[in-house]
């Protein structure tokens, strides 16, 4: 049997997809965003997407800065709005593979309205939300994904607001592909991102990322390995939902592919309608 795992690992060199002249990158040591970036580029590689056809659209935040490191057509847009830019880009240029990189604040606070409408529309965009539970870029303020009780610079006595279940939100809004993964599981993350890219329609992937420097320190979560392992052990892979030998964790978040439905892709539906109008005219 062919060992596809090893083969893929051998043929993938992340440096082929990074702008070498932009190195060193600006992420803090141990930041989960770097792991997510590697997994994403690996998925792009496995999907065989030519770099010239790849468009990466990002918002504003530490997460948003990642686009500048990718050797592709990259667009660093405005805070919360990358999905809107991506919508125009993908509709105007259906030949491009459009991937959005966004943060939990970018995507769910200032950009929350755009997310639910992108989910509803089902345009073929892959939205990768790097959820580090914090506004990293601006120095550690509370985000819509900060857990209750956590300390941030704007919740000095602990957060009193509940956070979203982003995947449930995306699924409820109609996203035809929804998944979640932790940075500790790079292979699983890479596979999930590949499935999301291959999916025709809007796909939403929540990556549980790690802001080691700010969130980790402020909440005594340890260094990045501790942060990553703690998250990993709090997860419950969706694929194991019916197996009895995995200990049941009542509050665990599910990882893996959570929603996958087949419904008309928006761009194709629009073009079919427009073609019909043109034929009727002639």
């Amino acid at each position: 049997m062919k060992d596809t795992k090893t083969e893929s690992a051998a043929s993938f060199d992340v440096n082929d997809y990074l702008r070498q002249d932009r190195m060193p990158h600006f992420l803090c040591p141990g930041c989960g965003h770097g792991i997510a970036l590697r997994a994403l580029l690996w998925a792009v590689h496995e999907q065989g997407i030519p770099k010239d056809r790849l468009a990466v659209v990002s918002g504003i935040g530490c997460s948003g800065r990642l686009s500048a490191y990718i050797d592709a057509n990259t667009f660093h847009t405005t805070h919360g709005r990358p999905l809107t830019f991506a919508t125009g880009l993908k509709l105007a240029r259906p030949d491009l593979h459009v991937i959005v990189i966004t943060g939990d604040g970018d995507c769910l606070a200032i950009g929350g309205n755009h997310l639910i409408h992108a989910c509803r529309r089902n345009l073929d965009i892959t939205c990768v939300m790097l959820n580090n539970e914090i506004y990293g870029m601006t120095g550690g303020q509370v985000s819509p994904m900060t857990a209750e009780g956590r300390f941030t610079t704007t919740t000095p006595e602990g957060n009193t607001e509940p956070n979203f279940d982003a995947c449930a939100l995306a699924a409820a809004a109609g996203a035809s592909f929804v998944g979640r993964e932790v940075t500790a599981q790079v292979l699983a993350l890479k596979t999930l991102l590949g499935q999301a890219i291959a999916h025709e329609g809007f796909s939403f992937v929540e990556v549980l990322s790690d802001c080691t420097e700010i969130y980790g320190r402020k909440n005594d979560l340890g260094a990045s390995p501790e942060m990553m392992l703690a998250k990993k052990s709090a997860m419950r892979p969706y694929a194991y939902r019916n197996t009895v030998d995995v200990p049941f964790r009542p509050n665990a978040l599910r990882t893996g592919v959570l929603t996958r439905t087949d419904r008309p892709e928006y761009g194709a539906a629009w073009r079919a309608m427009a073609a019909r109008i043109r034929n009727e005219e002639h």
Binding site: R81, T84, A86, G88, L89, K90, H117
Partner: peptide, 21 residues
């Protein structure tokens, strides 16, 4: 292509995105 977006911020973003394309 015509699209009615969810608000004016989104419309402006989509217009810029299309133009970037």
């Amino acid at each position: 292509t015509f699209i009615q977006m969810e608000d004016e911020i989104a419309s402006m973003g989509a217009v810029i995105g299309a133009s970037m394309g």
